[in-house]
Write a protein that binds this DNA or RNA. Structure first.
Lengths: 330, 330
DNA sequence: TCTAATTTGTGCGTATGTATG
DNA sequence: GCATACATACGCACAAATTAG
């Protein structure tokens, strides 16, 4: 079933892969059948176990065969053209992901499968998910979010298969990435909005340490200090007396809804009495209350750039552009 | 009591352990009960005696069971803290999932891990995901969406571990479920809105056959016929001249945005010239254009009920409630 | 009391994949 | 490519305790 030409340009492990693929296409191997064991192949063809292993591993990550410890390798799939499987680790499921994810899939080559996981800002889960899925995927796209020491887990993956998404950490600089520069972006976008911000007495960042990137808070504070603005960073809207002349930066939509309702309850007028800058643009913000001003990265572009990087196998670092979208709420 | 999946990644001895743990947690095995003998298990499931022995030994060292030579194994301890893994298969990632998913996690017992997959309305992917993950999870929660013949794949899973979510098919009635009755719901909610609908000349359902449930279209047509309304079902907004007097039912948010923009472009007035009923409520619809009227199931409740069903091991069918939320757009 | 069947417990050997250096 | 340790799975032989007849 397996034929190896000793002195030819093509690597032996690729010859093994081709042999097995042919056997599946020709029907010699059917779904559920066992492959010859690593030992028997390496003995019969006088190859190193590692060479055979490399071949079998690639067939595994492509989803064509499956390995069972203590038993052997089994054919999973008749279709040999399933080229790649991608492991995509998000922080949490929220509506910002919708654009990113659909744009990523849209621009990805066909018959690539993407499996999606969520770590929920929990390091144990983050680490467990990476370790459990090591070896099963061709590419690992990871959103480290604001977790610490993510490199401990990530470094256990094959370096050339890892991509970092959204937040960049200093220990992860060795990996290709599509990321946002939160500190820079918030400063430059708030500066663009400065004339409008100056209408207000005080600028307030609603900041949940466990979910938002630190760069956002740092950039915010730098901006406020360099422009001598009265400012505050608060963790929640609870017990906050809504004062005329406040402008809020709000990174999540639940609080956005809450604050707009509060504003209406108190008969305050958006953009006159209270200002709102929302973080991360989603579909309907264009229409809410005549339009919510947002600072947002272009999630569609982020997904597209990530897909292109995977398609072309380029290993680069791309800072995703970030824009201020001025609307009625400021 | 013991279920073993032959060709799967999870080792057989671990499957035996999990089976027995589940039997204890679910009450099938009580304190003092005898386990089936090593021989009977190894014969019944065609396993090596040693494999079964390995599993029973681990249960013994964990203090869950006790062995008596010449007699058998007996359950010592009711309290088994099993960290469960749940397989959750969604159709696609969209913002409606956010509430459902977060509410599900919130009400689930702690240290349960949920892995999420998406089939994208693709049967091959649906089937592959189920087969590849068979045996690796304690529970399988599956959104069959509008795919046909989903039971072929689903029936290969252990029956008592399967839960159906959102859409119910006749071949899946044997499984517990939290579902919507789309046909009934759209009829009753449109009837509630009938006085307002009668303001308009024509009612139009925007219906993407590949994504939306068939019951929605069937219910819509029944409603229109029984109330003698001029109606239409269209697949896309392209080439649609927006006519005064039309009321639209719009199941997805991209088209909702498109139509509202079109309405504004043409200087038509929402709820006077054109009506909108949106399907599936999300956070910001309350605020868009003074409020968008929606027909929606309560996704928070759906997640909660699903979590409760898993927590209590009840195997029932729950029709999730569905409501008309009247707002400015109708 | 003897016997046969069943059960747990132990030891040894072989084959497979996995991980590391 | 090689060597080594480890995890999983299967099979066989034999000992010791228990139970049913």
């Amino acid at each position: 079933m397996i034929s190896i030409q000793q002195k030819t340009g093509t690597p032996k492990y690729k010859q093994i892969i081709a042999s097995i693929e042919n056997a599946i296409v020709s029907g010699t191997l059917k779904k559920g059948d066992a492959l010859p064991s690593i030992n028997s192949v390496s003995m019969a063809h006088k190859l190193s176990r590692d060479t055979v292993l490399m071949a079998f591993n690639e067939l595994k990550t492509r989803g064509i065969v499956q390995s069972i410890v203590g038993k052997g390798y089994y054919v999973l799939n008749d279709q040999v053209d399933v080229t790649q499987k991608i492991f995509l680790l998000f922080d949490e499921l929220n509506s910002f992901k919708e654009d990113l994810y659909s744009s990523f899939l849209k621009h990805l080559d066909k018959n690539i499968r993407v499996d999606t996981f969520f770590h929920h800002f929990n390091y144990d889960m983050f680490s467990k998910l990476i370790h459990e899925n090591r070896g099963a995927y061709n590419q690992y796209i990871i959103m480290p979010a604001n977790l610490k020491n993510t490199h401990v887990a990530i470094d256990s993956l094959p370096k050339e298969r890892v991509y970092i998404l959204d937040q960049m950490h200093s220990e992860l600089l060795k990996y290709p990435a599509v990321y946002q520069n939160f500190e820079k972006d918030i400063i430059s976008n708030l500066n663009k909005a400065l004339p409008l911000i100056k209408k207000y007495n005080r600028i307030i960042l609603l900041f949940d340490e466990s979910r938002q990137p630190e760069g956002m808070r740092i950039g915010f504070e730098k901006f406020c200090i360099s422009n001598v603005l009265e400012h505050a960073v608060i963790a929640s809207l609870e017990n906050l007396p809504l004062a005329k002349g406040d402008v809020f930066i709000i990174p999540d939509d639940k609080n956005l809804l809450r604050i707009i309702k509060k504003i209406k309850e108190k008969n305050l007028v958006l953009s006159q009495d209270i200002g709102i800058i929302s973080y991360n643009d989603t579909l309907l913000k264009e229409l809410v209350e005549g339009g919510i001003t947002t600072i947002s990265t272009d999630f569609n572009k982020m997904g597209e750039q990530l897909a292109n990087m995977i398609n072309t196998k380029e290993q680069v670092k791309i800072e995703n552009s970030n824009a201020l979208i001025l609307r009625n709420s400021l």
